[in-house]
Design a protein around this nucleic acid. Structure first.
Lengths: 257, 257
DNA sequence: CCTGATCTTCCACATCGTGGAAAACTTCTA
DNA sequence: TAGAAGTTTTCCACGATGTGGAAGATCAGG
């Protein structure tokens, strides 16, 4: 095998998909075999495998093979993800400029928040957790913003499954405290991490909704506590929420119902 | 081997592609392994094979796997399969020139309309949603034009499954409103998006039929509401419908029956 | 520093992918 | 229309390649 670590038969099937894609009007088995350098019987078996999974289609009338609908459905997922981040970036920049602090985009995964995009503050001294950084949901502004949209029983289940992981002396340590915090978050329309994950850092976050009415992520501002005093949280929270709502609208999203 | 004549490793790779596509925010190796029931080392090797061919991509910062660009490129070929875009482009250009507005071609996918081709207005200020852009079916002229060809029970099922996602205060918010709008669409022969997706934008759309009698897509004109007042909708609608009918004929298509 | 979780690499082995041959089918030509 | 040529599909012996458990590496948390 020349290509290190690749599965030859998968490689060949993908070559066939690409060959198919290059033929607007479809292609015949022997033409595809010639193009990919595969024997006709191998080509046939790989094509029928792709066909059974909907990635290829056969038109018996014209004896032509075409790309199948499933390949389209899978490929569209690429634009969905790319367009989410691309759509969010100008809003993150705007939020960064409004606040002069670092703006983040995060998503939930398995009880944690992952920062998937970030626009850094221009200040020399600034709050940075690198993209890819993770935080337990209930220690994180973004996590709390997302979870606050959930029904209470789902929040209970999350805490039961993942526990609470107090990182500082400000962190939430009981289910009662969690629900009190969620109640505040819902009332305000934005969430606060008040030195609950990293001492000396505060974070304000608001949820972003997908077109399907799912809380797909959250955006936030993270700042040194010295630069974002408690008295400044409401104004900052309003800004974050406003930009999050705009991002939601720009994506054709909305809360459910 | 349970599936007759299929290549197991290709089958597995395709399962991984589908699993990836179902995760908007990307997925980690162990989650994908769990979902597909494959051992982590097998999952890893198949993913890296997909990655080397561009069908998957890895974000090391978040240790997440995503669908790759090549999957999109291959998937788009599905629409081309019917010589759809190629055939439609001259008609879109004609429609653009007739109307002096941006002309679009869209298809339905999973409760949304995806714009797969576009010919932009030559005006300096014009209505643009980029190709690849998505909109909920019932907020979109093109979506409504296509769905209006469906039987009522299929429309009910679509709404039941995907809900209505009002984006503006003009959007449809009830099943009754949906059916009233569908009734109008059928009577007129064209559909209207009257600032239902984007404030300040109107869209007029008409369905395109495939040779097999399927409502395969729709073409539309999107314009700033200021440039397309309500009084102008009937004339514009007639133009869009006429060009859509010509495209249908050029493709050897026709409505069923 | 230790522990546990996750990810990556390795390799012996047997499963499964293979491709040539044969059979079946379709199209073309005289 | 029959035969030839081309295309597609099926079959199966065999060895190439895919495999998954184990080991190693890395990372995160206490």
């Amino acid at each position: 095998m020349e290509k290190l670590g690749t599965v030859q038969s998968v490689d060949r099937a993908l070559s066939l998909l690409e060959a198919l894609a290059s033929h607007t009007g479809g292609a015949r088995l022997t033409a595809l075999a010639r193009e990919t350098g595969l024997p006709p019987s191998t080509t046939h078996r790989l094509l029928t495998t792709l066909e059974q999974r909907g990635f290829a289609q056969f038109d018996p009338a014209a004896t032509r093979w075409h790309i199948g609908r499933k390949a389209f459905a899978v490929g569209v997922a690429f634009t969905r993800w790319q367009s989410f981040i691309a759509a969010a970036l100008p809003f993150l920049r705007r939020l960064r400029d409004l606040s002069r602090e670092t703006a983040n985009l995060g998503v939930l995964e398995d009880g944690e928040v992952i920062t998937v995009a970030q626009v850094e503050s221009r200040e020399i001294i600034r709050a940075i957790a690198p993209p890819g950084g993770r935080a337990p949901v209930m220690n994180s502004g973004m996590g709390k913003a997302i979870v606050a949209t959930w029904p209470d029983h789902a929040i209970d289940a999350l805490v039961a499954r993942h526990g609470l992981r107090p990182a500082t002396r400000h962190s939430l340590t009981s289910l009662e405290a969690v629900h009190a915090e969620i109640g505040l978050t819902r009332a305000r329309g934005y969430a606060v991490d008040d030195e609950e994950f990293t001492p000396g850092m505060r974070c304000v976050a608001a949820v972003v909704w997908s077109p399907t009415g799912d809380p797909v992520g959250a955006i936030s501002i993270s700042a040194l506590a010295a630069r974002l005093p408690v008295e400044g949280l409401p104004a900052m929270g309003a800004s974050v929420r406003e930009v999050a709502d705009e991002l939601t609208r720009a994506m054709g999203g909305a809360p459910p119902g």
